[in-house]
């Protein structure tokens, strides 16, 4: 059993190593660098406050991503700066996309990023977690506090939407 001090030292180092990933995830949620840094700051504060609830045998990334996402939900609830919230699962298939409308810009280097930005929030979120952060469906389900089947259906719709936008046949 490591001493309290060693436990905190490890938590501290692991958290610092995760900061770039936390920022990237935060940025994918709020798409504003200042708000993203605020979100990460709130996340590390909450992580330290709840550190005794963290099981070191489980991945710290999934645990902190979940805190970050909940902080983002709190923030959007509080500020209501996000406009009307539409449950994406109720929407048909995200934005209507047509391969022929793909612009030149999208075909260039930033095209994947541009296409990602057009995905509905809930689809972009699972894309980021699985295809960028390399998390398993089970980890994503835990972060989103949602059934794994929901994760998979959001992700498959996101992938099909992205493929259409990028002209992938």
């Amino acid at each position: 059993m490591p001493s309290d001090k060693n436990r905190i030292d490890r938590f501290e180092e692991d958290l610092i190593n995760l900061l770039p990933n936390l920022r990237r995830f935060a940025l994918s949620l709020c798409r504003n660098p200042d708000i993203a840094d605020d979100l990460v700051q709130i996340t590390v504060e909450r992580a330290f406050a709840a550190r005794n609830h963290y099981d070191p045998a489980t991945p710290l990334a999934a645990w902190t991503f979940r805190i970050l996402r909940n902080a983002w939900i709190d923030m959007t609830r509080k500020t209501r700066n996000h406009g009307a919230q539409i449950p994406i699962d109720d929407m048909a298939d995200g934005p209507s996309v047509d391969g022929r409308q793909v612009t030149e810009a999208r075909l260039m280097l930033g095209s994947v990023e541009a296409a990602m930005a057009e995905l509905p929030d809930q689809q972009r979120e699972v894309m980021v977690l699985v295809c960028i952060e390399d998390m398993t469906y089970a980890e994503v389900a835990e972060i989103l506090e949602t059934p794994i089947g929901t994760v998979m259906s959001r992700l498959s719709r996101a992938r099909i939407n992205l493929a259409k936008m990028l002209g992938i046949e």
């Binding site: 920022r23 994947v112 295809c131 960028i132 992205l162």
Partner: peptide, 14 residues
């Protein structure tokens, strides 16, 4: 292919 297309975004974050 859609996953492969994301590979470019998987570079080390800032």
């Amino acid at each position: 292919k859609s996953r492969a297309a994301m590979a470019g975004l998987r570079r080390t974050p800032d």
